[in-house]
Simulated assay, not measured.
Amino acid sequence: MLSPERLALPDYEYLAQRHVLTYMEDAVCQLLENREDISQYGIARFFTEYFNSVCQGTHILFREFSFVQATPHNRVSFLRAFWRCFRTVGKNGDLLTMKEYHCLLQLLCPDFPLELTQKAARIVLMDDAMDCLMSFSDFLFAFQIQFYYSEFLDSVAAIYEDLLSGKNPNTVIVPTSSSGQHRQRPALGEAGMLEGVEASLFYQCLENLCDRHKYSCPPPALVKEALSNVQRLTFYGFLMALSKHHGINQALGALPDKGDLMHDPAMDEELERLLAQVPGLVNSVTASPEASCLPSRTPPRVGSPWRPLHHHSRKVDGESDGSTEETDESET
């Protein structure tokens, strides 16, 4: 049954809003790269399994960063995968450095840029040294804001700098490239870090930015709520307020509430099924933080979401009892 949202939009607008062409192009590229294997099972089955993986959010595992950040759904899927795979870090109470968290990110996305990890760590650490230890939950919620709203925050940083210098923030150019090469965030001077800007004026500029921004941005009403109790604020104080805001986390929809971050039996079962499909990931999750964060560790590369399923199902099909229970479980 078609949703009311689908019926309210012309076909081309709905396809663009859902980034369907992005997934079709990626599916075709993988189809061509693996055409010899696919010829044994059929194109229809390949597309079925590909789009099932997109719906389940597993399509971003071990993919290049340009694909991981290509759509809002991909970003949400990556955030959720990072939380699922390394939630044990938080459950064990381990504290890691920025470089160690970056190694964990690279286990899921080999070319994940260090710059984004550094920006997320700076939200937590503020003026502290970048080699300080951070809890998993603090880093995760800061990383969520930085990663999902990356382009928006680059524009916010420029607005903040303009307000500090007395310039007109309306002259800020909103980034329009989706290539993943984000503009370098302006360096915030020590005076700007301590002094801050007037919260009401800052919000007015952000409201105008949200109206014209082409990328995802937090709901303006929730941003206003996050700033309602302060008269002045610094840039990183603003980012910290976003990362701790319950409503913004719910609106984004990638992570549970902070109180439920470590407690989810159903998620533990799903994690076990995921690890069973990727044996190379088991050691990285169950090992100590020091062992799992070695820079020399090379994450496994999965070129296509359907390939392990085919190999597994072919083995089951050859068994005499005809059972499909194991195959069905591996495809969930």
Rank of each mutant, 00 (worst) to 15 (best):
M126P: 00
Q184M: 14
V54L: 08
C29E: 15
E207R: 14
Q56Y: 10
L21Q: 13
V174P: 05
V302C: 08
F112T: 02
A44S: 14
G166V: 04
M1K: 07
F235G: 02
K258I: 10
M1A: 10
P295Q: 06
V278H: 04
E225V: 02
D317P: 00
E329K: 13
F147E: 05
G166N: 07
V278E: 07
T327D: 13
L194K: 15
M24D: 06
Y160I: 07
Q231D: 15
D162Y: 12
F47P: 03
S200A: 13
A16F: 08
K167G: 07
Q106T: 14
I159M: 14
V285R: 03
D127G: 03
C55K: 11
H246Q: 10
L209S: 10
L105S: 06
L95P: 00
E272W: 02
T171K: 12
D127S: 08
W306H: 11
Q30L: 12
Y149N: 10
V316F: 04
Q146N: 13
L209D: 05
A187C: 12
G93W: 02
V68H: 05
I60N: 03
R307N: 04
L281N: 00
R75S: 08
E190T: 14
L96W: 00
R63I: 00
Q204D: 14
K224A: 13
H19R: 12
N34K: 06
S288T: 15
C132A: 12
L61A: 02
L79M: 09
A251V: 03
D257H: 07
H213T: 10
C109A: 14
D162T: 03
L79P: 01
V76Y: 00
Y50M: 04
E331V: 11
Y236A: 00
E5F: 11
C293A: 14
T286C: 11
E331D: 10
V68Q: 01
T71Y: 08
D321H: 03
D26L: 03
P218K: 09
T117F: 01
E36C: 05
R80H: 14
S39C: 07
S177T: 10
P300R: 09
H245T: 11
F136G: 01
S77P: 02
L233N: 03
E100H: 05
R45D: 15
H102Q: 10
H245D: 13
L261Q: 03
D257K: 03
R232E: 12
L209M: 11
L104P: 01
D94C: 10
G93C: 10
G253K: 00
L153Q: 08
P308M: 04
G189A: 11
R314H: 11
L275T: 07
L255R: 06
G322R: 14
G322V: 09
